[in-house]
């Protein structure tokens, strides 16, 4: 669903030039959740904005759903972002003047879905996340955990196939952080490909695969773990 081939991103020039990404290759299949772990300044957020076509790489290729982004026009990329890619940010980025349902319906309406149909899809997405009674509330009437669930509903509503999340649990407590990752994983089990960038190992551990980024390079990755039952057989006697 998402492939990055040897992607490099430079900011600035001359002595002030910063190499934010340095030859990054990454492949995320439909239905799988990949976490990118790294400290701040390691390039993980840049990786996400480039994967979501919000920025262009200095060199290298990004392919989403089989289509190379470099071969698309500006309009085609905007359409891809509206239709196929959902974003979740640390600070939720909900529009304060719109209700939960209106926030979720917005990308559909921007893409030409009729308001009534868009609202229906938004309500269904909210119901799927246990927010059916919050649909007509405004963001400031929701708790932090509820706001983030609305943001996830907006990111998965309609036929979105790629979910990109940047520190999605933000300042949420661990129970809400876990709830966020359960929702992301549930979307993946329905066939969505997801990339979550985080510095938090507990969040990352929900992923099928964790890759580690340092100074703009992917330096390591987990191998698929054996079945969890192995843990229990290995537990020492008390």
């Amino acid at each position: 669903m998402l492939q990055l081939h040897d992607v490099t991103k430079l900011y600035g020039s001359g002595a002030a030039q910063v190499r934010a990404l340095d030859g990054v290759s990454l492949s995320v299949d439909a239905g799988s959740l990949v976490a990118v772990m790294g400290p701040s300044g390691s390039g993980k957020s840049t990786l996400l904005t480039i994967a979501g076509s919000l920025e262009e790489p200095t060199s290298g290729d990004v392919v989403v759903g089989g289509s190379p982004l470099a071969s698309m026009s500006v309009d085609e990329r905007a359409r891809l972002r509206r239709r196929s890619i959902g974003f979740v940010f640390q600070d939720f980025n909900l529009l304060p003047g719109l209700t939960a349902a209106e926030n979720v319906a917005l990308p559909l309406e921007l893409d030409g879905t009729r308001p009534r149909a868009a609202r229906q899809m938004a309500i269904e997405a909210l119901e799927g996340l246990g927010l059916d009674t919050e649909a007509d509330r405004f963001p400031d009437q929701l708790s932090g955990g509820e706001r983030q669930r609305v943001a996830i509903a907006r990111a998965v509503v309609g036929d979105r196939r790629l979910l990109l999340a940047d520190e999605p649990s933000g300042a949420l407590d661990s129970a809400n952080g876990e709830a966020v990752m359960r929702l992301v994983l549930a979307a993946c089990r329905r066939g969505v490909a997801a990339v979550v960038v985080t510095h938090d190992a507990q969040l990352a551990s929900w992923a099928d695969r964790v890759v580690f980024i340092r100074d703009g390079r992917i330096v390591d990755g987990t191998v698929p773990p054996p079945s969890p039952e192995a843990l229990l057989q290995a537990a020492p006697e008390p």
């Binding site: 190992a201 929900w206 992923a207 390591d220 987990t222 191998v223 773990p225 054996p226 969890p228």
Partner: peptide, 26 residues
Amino acid sequence: VRRLLQVHRRRVVELMQQWTRLKEDE
């Protein structure tokens, strides 16, 4: 040492993935 830290970090995260799988079916 950085490489050494990463070897241990990966191993611990792999273990965490296994424990988290046990939580998946709430």
